[in-house]
Design a protein around this nucleic acid. Structure first.
Length: 170
DNA sequence: GCGACAG
DNA sequence: ATCTTGTCGC
């Protein structure tokens, strides 16, 4: 499936659901009470990003964590504005700022500064069966570096596998 | 037509 | 996301 901004769930959710099914079959004791997803939850043009899509289909609490801001034109939320506001208002580690739609005034997510070292925030938003406050608290609690460890570890492991497969076919 | 664009 | 160059710090 191609990557198309705003439609990430249609590319990624099937693979995530398959992983969860396999985990339940092979290591049921490790089945998660809640999941972090590399992408957005309600911070999305249709307020239904990968974390929502996956969370509903898997029926588990899910939190979205994105490393880059996805513009939401209908709410006048731009990457430029968001980064600007984040730079000015996010100071210490754990500091966060709510991201509110400028048209609907709905609370869609938050910009979180994970550590004092990381200037660029991560964008946290609830996916399913979890509040924004809990999403931000859990994400912040899992941050050793900029990206929460569950997401960072999964990202690292997947890249390692790709490297091995690539090297194998040389 | 131009710019923007989670991963 | 991927790729390349350059810098800082342990």
């Amino acid at each position: 499936m191609p990557y198309i901004a705003g439609y990430l769930a249609f590319r990624e959710a099937p693979a995530l659901l398959d992983l969860l099914t396999r985990l339940k079959e092979t290591k049921p004791e490790l089945y998660p009470q809640i999941a972090f997803v590399d992408g957005n939850g309600t911070l999305h043009p249709r307020r239904f990003g990968l974390a929502c899509h996956f969370g509903v289909l898997a029926d588990i609490p899910c939190i979205g964590v994105a490393k880059n801001f996805l513009e939401i034109p209908t709410e006048s939320l731009t990457i430029k504005d968001t980064k600007q506001v984040s730079r000015e208002h996010l100071h210490g580690a754990g500091a966060w700022l709510p991201i509110v739609g400028k048209m609907t005034h709905d609370l869609l997510g938050a910009a979180l500064r994970a550590s004092s070292e990381s200037v660029n925030p991560v964008f946290v938003s609830p996916g399913h069966r979890v509040s924004l406050a809990t999403s931000v608290a859990l994400a912040a609690a899992c941050c050793k570096y900029r990206v929460p460890e569950p997401v960072r570890a999964a990202d690292s492991a997947s890249r390692q596998l790709v490297r091995e497969i690539t090297a194998r076919s040389q």
